[in-house]
Each structure stands twice: as C-alpha cells, then as structure tokens.
Amino acid sequence: MNALPMILVFAASLNSCIGNMLLKWSRVSLPADAGVADKFFSISFLSGLAFYGINVVLLAKALDSMEVSIAYPILAGSGFAMLMVASYYVFGEPFRPHKWIGLALILAGIIFLARGN
C-alpha cells in the first residue's frame, strides 16, 4: 500500500486531536456564566470546528485508496492516543495506569491494522 493514505489518516487524527483540545479550551477559558454567543462563537470553538473540517477532508482523501474498515479505526485510535497525551500536558488531566494500558492496546491495534493489509 502507498504510504500517502496512511499519512493522511494520521494527519486527520492530529487535526481531530487539535480540534478536541480547542473545544475543551473553549469551555475552560470562559467563565461559567458565559452566554451562548460567547461559548459558540469564541475563536477557540470556531477553530476547533475548522480542525474537524480539515480532519474530514484528509480522511476523505485517504479513503480514495484505503479501506474505511482500516482507516477509521486507525484514525480514531491514534486520535485518542494523541488526545490522552495532549490533555495530560495541556490541561493536567490525570494519566492513571488504566489509561496507560488503554493506550498500549490502542497502539497495538493500530499496528495490527496497519500491517494487516
């Protein structure tokens, strides 16, 4: 298999991770009593949506030459893995032993799927 579709899938998962981090940032950076317009028209919220859009475009391009049954699990798994690490460093979210085990299983699954073709 050509490496480009796999690179596109990983780029899409990175965009998904960034989008999720920006959505979280849009929630924690505002006061609890912020209005609807402040919550949904903040630069971090709109940027998060833009990164999701880029995610969809990259995945669609990868699907031109890759099976969706392989591409999507790799996208989701690698996105979850990136998100767990990023949320630990950016938001201080705990990284307990069960998350380490889950991360190892996700990475093993990604490797298994990527090599299975």
Rank of each mutant, 00 (worst) to 15 (best):
S69R: 02
L14T: 06
A71D: 01
I110D: 05
I111S: 14
M66W: 00
A71Q: 07
A86S: 13
P97R: 10
F45M: 06
L105H: 02
S44D: 13
A81G: 11
F10S: 05
A81S: 15
A3D: 12
F10Y: 07
A62T: 03
I101E: 12
L63K: 02
L59Y: 04
K99G: 04
I54D: 06
I18H: 01
L30N: 07
A114H: 10
A11G: 04
G53E: 02
A60N: 13
A60Y: 09
Y88T: 12
L30C: 01
Y88S: 14
A108G: 08
W25C: 04
M82I: 09
S87N: 15
N55T: 03
S44Y: 12
L23R: 08
V57E: 11
R115C: 14
F45L: 03
C17L: 12
Y72H: 02
A108W: 06
F80Q: 11
L4W: 04
F41P: 00
S65Q: 09
Y52T: 01
W25V: 11
K61L: 15
G35E: 01
A34G: 00
G102I: 12
E93L: 10
H98Y: 14
M21G: 10
S78K: 02
V68G: 03
G77F: 03
N117V: 15
K61I: 15
S13I: 01
P97C: 12
A76M: 14
A81Q: 11
F91R: 08
G92T: 08
F10A: 03
A71L: 03
S47N: 10
L14W: 01
I7C: 06
S65M: 09
I7T: 10
G109T: 04
L105C: 11
A81D: 07
A50D: 06
M21R: 00
E67F: 06
A34I: 02
P5E: 03
S44Q: 15
A12D: 01
N15A: 14
A86F: 14
V68F: 05
S47G: 15
N2P: 14
I70V: 13
G19R: 00
A60M: 10
L59K: 02
P97S: 12
A71I: 01
C17G: 05
E93H: 08
L59I: 01
A11S: 02
G116E: 13
P97G: 13
L23Q: 09
A11H: 03
L83I: 11
S65C: 03
V56C: 08
A34Y: 00
S47R: 05
F51T: 09
L113N: 05
K61E: 13
S13F: 00
N2T: 07
I74L: 01
F40H: 07
G19K: 00
G77A: 08
L23S: 03
S13H: 02
P5M: 08
L75E: 03
K99H: 13
Y72T: 00
F91G: 12
V36G: 02
D33A: 14
E67T: 10
A114T: 11
A81I: 06
L58P: 02
G19S: 08
P97L: 14
S78W: 03
M82D: 01
D64H: 10
P73T: 00
L49C: 11
K99W: 13
L30H: 02
P31S: 05
S87Y: 09
I54H: 04
